[in-house]
């Protein structure tokens, strides 16, 4: 198509200027909107997709109850989505009666600095001694009680999942467990863990 030459009169010049201004304004507005749009989450995740931590808690001793709860509460404080699947002896952590009575076994635990040879850990009273000792350490170091960590976990949205197989095997009833606990089996945990960024077996 042939372009008709246009004489650059002041009127045409003004028209061109108006057109250019309008287009630059539009482009600027678009770019500004782009810059002002919400930024992606600093860790690279979109706001809709938080990091996720999935933990299996399988031990019911005082010392082994802490790691899952410390990691879970910290992850929740860091905006992660967290679920803990309490299974086998780990279910004792959710048990109203057993939680305050979790123990540390000195027997078969050479790392335990009970001031007697490890074999004597088999003697009556040694588990109570080791437990009392560890509780003193925790108190002295101002480590929160397990009950407090569980409350923090619950309040910050950590899913506490009770393994129903364990409940069946050990004869544990729902009402024996803490409030806010949900009940599920392996498929539920795997479904949750399949989308997890970190999965731990404790």
């Amino acid at each position: 198509m042939a372009v008709q030459p246009v004489e650059l009169t002041p009127a045409v010049e003004a028209r061109i200027k108006q057109e250019v201004d309008a287009r630059v304004d539009a482009a600027l507005q678009a770019r500004l909107q782009e810059l002002l749009a919400p930024r992606p989450h600093p860790n690279g995740a979109s706001p809709a997709r938080r990091k996720r931590l999935a933990i299996v808690a399988s031990k019911g001793t005082l010392d082994m109850a802490y790691p899952p709860l410390i990691l879970a509460t910290t992850a929740a404080a860091m905006d992660w989505e967290v679920g803990i699947f309490f299974t086998f002896y780990g279910l004792d952590i959710l048990n109203r009666k057993k939680l305050p009575r979790l123990k540390v076994p000195p027997l078969g635990n050479p790392a335990m600095p009970v001031p007697v040879p490890n074999l004597l850990g088999a003697l009556p009273g040694m588990t109570a001694l080791a437990t009392a000792m560890m509780q003193r350490w925790f108190t002295r170091a101002r480590i929160p009680k397990l009950e407090q960590l569980l409350e923090t976990a619950r309040a910050s949205g950590v899913q506490l999942i009770s393994c129903t197989t364990t409940m069946g095997v050990m004869g544990v009833r729902q009402e024996e467990l803490l409030p806010g606990v949900t009940f599920a089996g392996a498929a539920t945990f795997l479904d949750f863990a399949s989308e997890a960024d970190v999965t731990l077996f404790v």
């Binding site: 910290t74 404080a77 170091a141 480590i143 960590l149 910050s156």
Partner: peptide, 13 residues
């Protein structure tokens, strides 16, 4: 002061 992990992070949050 005087507390250990995870207390400072949880309280800061």
């Amino acid at each position: 002061r005087g507390t250990l992990c995870p207390v400072p992070i949880i309280q800061a949050r």
